[in-house]
Design a protein around this nucleic acid. Structure first.
Lengths: 100, 100
DNA sequence: ACAAAGCACTTTGTATTTCAAAGTAAATAT
DNA sequence: ATATTTACTTTGAAATACAAAGTGCTTTGT
């Protein structure tokens, strides 16, 4: 019987910018807006909306602080986000494995 | 010095449906429209446009035949498509490796 | 023989997503 | 006091995704 290769990859994570954000948050715990922007070479607006998307999905939590009277946006993964990312990676590895 | 993790993944391949199509074509050489449609659970229209996208990019070649007086659409990877897919997979593996 | 249904797609229109230009608000420099 | 910079958010235009509707042929039923 033919199995269905219906590629099961979380839509929210399967996007270059958001994959990058999640990747960084997996290893960085507490990360600044500007760090992500610089590291991923995203425009302000682009990063802002992607962070909102991830926040809406409850994959990340966004904290706003003031440091030296300037706003500072900090992001970190939620447990849900961590799980979603791990599952995404596992799915991806399965796909890659099935190719080899 | 901080490296830039600008995720470098071919936009044409980095999409669930097209990733599925390419994956199948990597192992199947000559594949029918309806096979892809069934295997990937895509609607006719959706598959049709994704195949056109891949064809426009010269990642696949589409042949049209008649079999028992019915149209039959066959697809196969081009060498360019194969290379693009391999590079996509390598990039993906790098990203995964960098996560572990 | 003729209409109705089926098959194998493609085209079209709508909905969603992406992304950067423009906007906001506060701080700092001139 | 005004201009510039910093740190974002909002908005609107463009691209993308997808399914409903359309096309053109064939087969089936009556």
């Amino acid at each position: 019987m033919q199995e269905h290769l219906t590629i099961r990859l979380d839509k929210v994570i399967h996007q270059k910018a958001r994959l990058g954000i999640m990747s960084i948050l997996m290893v960085m715990e507490e990360t600044e807006f500007n760090y992500l922007k610089e590291r991923l070479k995203l425009s302000d607006g682009n990063l802002s909306t992607h962070l909102s998307t991830l926040e809406k999905e409850k994959y990340i939590k966004i904290k706003k602080k003031f440091v030296k009277k300037k706003p500072k946006t900090l992001c970190h993964l939620t447990e849900k986000g961590r799980q979603a990312f791990l599952e995404y990676m596992n799915n991806l590895e399965q796909i890659i494995k099935s190719m080899r």
